[in-house]
Design a binder for these strands. Structure first.
Lengths: 353, 353
DNA sequence: ATCTCTCGTGCAATCGATTGCAATCCTCGG
DNA sequence: CCGAGGATTGCAATCGATTGCACGAGAGAT
């Protein structure tokens, strides 16, 4: 066995086909089915210990790797999980993905991440993932009223939502407590003495946009402030540019707010741009609060006060929900809500005078 | 046919199996092979137009989706590309991935991205991707002298490198011109009047770290400055914390440099931390230049002067190289080098007095 | 010594799609 | 009116692994 452990060097040329279970069987003088059993942890007890060992050794020597496509075809499970992301380049998403992948990998699943921006319609992407035989789907892209939800509910593939939810709550989800986050932000500003607080809302067809807006309004009301002193401008997208536009509209109002709560850090950065364009400074003229605590918002100028959401945990939770769904497809829908945390930095201060 | 186009509503319960080519064949009264041909653009000319149309219609009605696992098993091609990433959460990586995925998706490939941090060894990850039957591999993780390179060269799967290269150049690669980038940075500082320029180098076992360091030294020499006035400290990793440590060491030298070129934006931000910890300000006391132009470094304080590398293009190029490799596995190794660009912001200024 | 019972292994079908080859039908030319 | 040739379609093997079933041998009981 002097070549037994030189796996990477056993000289299979560039064109040598990968060894199959049959090759091992032939070399060991046993039937392929025996090899299959010996190599499967779950079935290993069915084969004699010495034979199993011999097979195992030969498999290593040949550098054998199980063909997942064949296994998947036979068993109907691919070990693949599809993930639909709004935009991989959005810095808010990677932590979620990371938490998701870590959990899923630990269970032997690989993830296929598809950026919705680049492809066709969401439905087609879902279908193509299903065609690939994914055992489950994670959607980070759904809008509040989204056809893809109905499409998914009918499908035979387990689906969970992450970060966003659908209006009817028809699919399991892992998301942050948006209302609680807004309350943290508003309470902080009120405690500082602000009385005219504006809101740059996110797209209203997305649950985070709608819920954070609702949470904002509720918090304002609960603080005894009038909604008349709480102007709201909705951004058309979660982008810095859209935040700038909405911010400019807010700052253009007759009674300019002394503080602005943005639905998202990207929007908050856009508000920074708007302030700069208006010749105003933060926090001296206007305080700003973001949402999500994206990487590096502690380094911008001024460091952004924001609501930190548990992104990794959100991903991990989504993974857990999905795995549960895969095991028992008919379990009740679970909607996990994670608690956010206020991170106070330098973009908020007492209002002037 | 009143229910023909209500695909998502055709009432397949949660347990209904997906329709197969055989189901369509039965419904159309033809043989499965005919269905296969009718549904394959390449073989469609072999079947009568009217039959093909009938089959097509029935396929739509049933919501048929081809089973990629089965197809892959038969044809030996999975339509999957594996990507090994150093860390998805590193903000520098998503643009590369995005360029990569866009190109690959357009050609019908899906990408499986694996974060090396969370899993086992790189080799095992490569092997597990090969087990999944990937048609190609993109490595963004290789070190200069990396076993995985030999492992990959021997494998029957096409492999390309992105962002990083291996010392021997044994695998095709798409990367930025590191030397040119450093030259841009150094020339800019020299033009501003700096004479003592330090370098926070990246990990030297990674090509970007080593090449940028070499490029730095060459540029210094070409500028007629002495290397004695160009202190270098290597960071142990591409992280903000490591950049801070290296920055502190650099600032602690007897003849403190008036400018620091970092091998990476993350390291540059760490240098910001080091400056703050030393009670120095940027750019008044020390100018700083980064590398990569990560998202939002224009918003930090002060906005970072940095070398912008063509990340999306790098990803797109890697995709192109890989597709070429898949088509003709024996083509010569191509090493594409992309030109960087200097983005001047506010972290660089004339040296004091 | 015979009968069970268990353990280990082989056999063969199966998953869904593809494809070389064979068979059939039709048409057109001679 | 027959045969050649083209156009369609059916047949069956195949990809690699899994698994229910059956067969055989050996151990233990009576």
């Amino acid at each position: 066995m002097r070549h037994g452990d030189r796996r990477s060097l056993t000289g299979r040329g560039a064109t040598a086909p990968r060894p199959t279970i049959k090759d091992i069987a032939a070399r060991c003088g046993v039937h392929p089915s025996t090899v299959s059993r010996a190599l499967s942890p779950a079935m290993k007890h069915l084969v004699a210990a010495d034979v199993a060992e011999r097979i195992q050794a030969e498999a290593n020597a040949l550098g054998y790797r199980l063909n997942m496509a064949a296994k998947g075809l036979r068993t109907g499970r691919s070990g693949l999980i599809g993930v639909l992301a709004p935009d991989i380049a959005d810095p808010g998403f990677p932590p979620v993905l990371s938490g998701l992948a870590e959990h899923l990998n630990a269970e032997g699943y690989a993830t296929i991440v598809v950026d919705v921006g680049t492809g066709g319609s969401q439905q087609d992407l879902v279908d193509s993932l299903i065609a690939r035989g994914v055992d489950g789907l994670v959607l980070a892209t759904v809008r509040l009223h989204d056809d893809v939800v109905a499409h998914s509910v009918g499908a035979s593939t387990p689906v969970v939502l992450v970060n966003r939810v659908d209006a009817a709550g028809e699919l399991p989800s892992a998301a942050s407590d948006d209302a609680a986050g807004m309350r943290l932000a508003v309470d902080h500003l009120v405690a500082l003495g602000h009385r005219r607080i504006g809101h740059v809302a996110g797209p209203q067809e997305i649950s985070t946009g709608a819920r954070r807006r609702a949470g904002f309004e509720a918090s304002i009301a609960d603080s005894g402030l009038s909604l008349g002193d709480a102007p709201i401008e909705a951004a058309t997208a979660y982008t810095r540019a859209a935040g700038r536009e909405a911010g400019l509209r807010l700052l253009g109002r007759k009674a300019r707010p002394t503080a602005i709560v943005a639905a998202n850090d990207l929007l908050a950065l856009g508000v920074y741009d708007a302030l700069a364009a208006s010749g105003l400074t933060c926090p001296a003229d206007v305080s700003v609060v973001g949402h999500n605590d994206m990487p590096f918002v502690d380094l911008v100028s001024p460091p952004l006060t924001t609501v930190r959401i548990a992104q990794r945990e959100m991903g991990a939770t989504a993974a857990r929900l999905l795995l549960a769904r895969i095991r028992s497809p008919d379990a009740a829908n679970e909607h996990v809500v994670l608690q956010p945390e206020l991170i106070i930095r330098a973009s908020t201060a007492r209002p002037r005078s």
